[in-house]
Design a protein around this nucleic acid. Sequence first.
DNA 1: TGTACATCAGTGAACGCGCGTTCACTGATGTAC
DNA 2: TGTACATCAGTGAACGCGCGTTCACTGATGTAC
Lengths: 204, 204
Amino acid sequence: MKKNTFADLKANEKKARQDVIIDAAERVFAVKPFSKVSIRDIAREAGISHASIYRYFPDQQSLFVEAFLRGAGEISLFLADIIRDNQQGAVEKVSEAYVTYLIKNDPYFRMMTQFMLDGALSSKMIEKLNAAERRIFDQFDILFRQMRFKEPVRPLSHAFFAALNGVLITFRNYPGRTKEAVHQHMTNIAKVIAKKFQTKYSIL
Amino acid sequence: MKKNTFADLKANEKKARQDVIIDAAERVFAVKPFSKVSIRDIAREAGISHASIYRYFPDQQSLFVEAFLRGAGEISLFLADIIRDNQQGAVEKVSEAYVTYLIKNDPYFRMMTQFMLDGALSSKMIEKLNAAERRIFDQFDILFRQMRFKEPVRPLSHAFFAALNGVLITFRNYPGRTKEAVHQHMTNIAKVIAKKFQTKYSIL
DNA sequence: TGTACATCAGTGAACGCGCGTTCACTGATGTAC
DNA sequence: TGTACATCAGTGAACGCGCGTTCACTGATGTAC
């Protein structure tokens, strides 16, 4: 028993140090575009030697994926909160909250997009990322079920999620606008989409 | 006069050689993820020394942007064709065509997304990319005007374009599915979105 | 209590690589007189 | 027609850099007896 407890303690400490590294990674991702972030950057930010990183993560890709997964978990918690508080099923409010959250947490959004585009991910990593994505879909499912749509809810969640991500990607580099103006435009367009998703099918 | 003509000829030849390089770039982009494509790759594919590239493009970024712009032009021509042939304003058909086109021309889609995400583009490049984007919006504007929506048409085009791009990004790495299954899923979700865009606002 | 050993976090240096870009040069073609 | 010169596409070699990863080592801590 004692042996187990000691081993547990050590494992916890290891976990804590992993978290310190991920914290550092997060700060670096906040400041640099994804493709420019290096192991050396993260090590410097964490105050350790870059060789030490390899005590905690087998390679760069694993570290990046772990860092993202932590953020992805936060996204679905955040969505769960909003959707719980919005019993009346206001798609508009959820879409605005989602867009605003991902603008504020831009590093996570950039990471998510990079992983979506990356053709070189191992299937194990892809599966992990997809599990995180499914947790987000689940939240949107709850939202749409609240609205008592007759149509199946999962495709709606897929479409809604994809559409909002599209907004966040498409209007990132709007030339000659302030950050605030871009944010404003994104929420406007997200609102257009939300309104479309608030109506049930009506055969024209 | 003669002098001018000769100069013109030379300019045309230079343009033709630039095009050969862009052709080569296109082939490389078809095979490698964006971030892995190097000047050396493109030169090899074009059958010239990598130093020669710099006779035709001032730097890597300019070459990449030019390569993309050619493809972006093709996209809006393609859209124009479809929308002209679909006088009855079938959003669904246009959305399916768009998605299918970009799956088939995946390199362009990947380039577009990379440019959207890239934080290090010069404002001159961003302006060029945005001009291309506006030409696509213009086509969607025509589509939505055909449908005689009362609401302003440009925000719809923004939202529709963004939503479809979102679909193309979000479901790229669906684990354990064949290319065909992924394509199928994308068109299904695009259809969900199209249906939403086919209905006018209806206050619930 | 003391000693020999095992474990393991942490490290600086090095490896090997590929990259964007520049440079000095070659050789072909056209121009001036 | 011949000669000196200018232009410029094309090139191989080199520069300088940053990267992911590995290696051999140090030193602290815990364990066994």
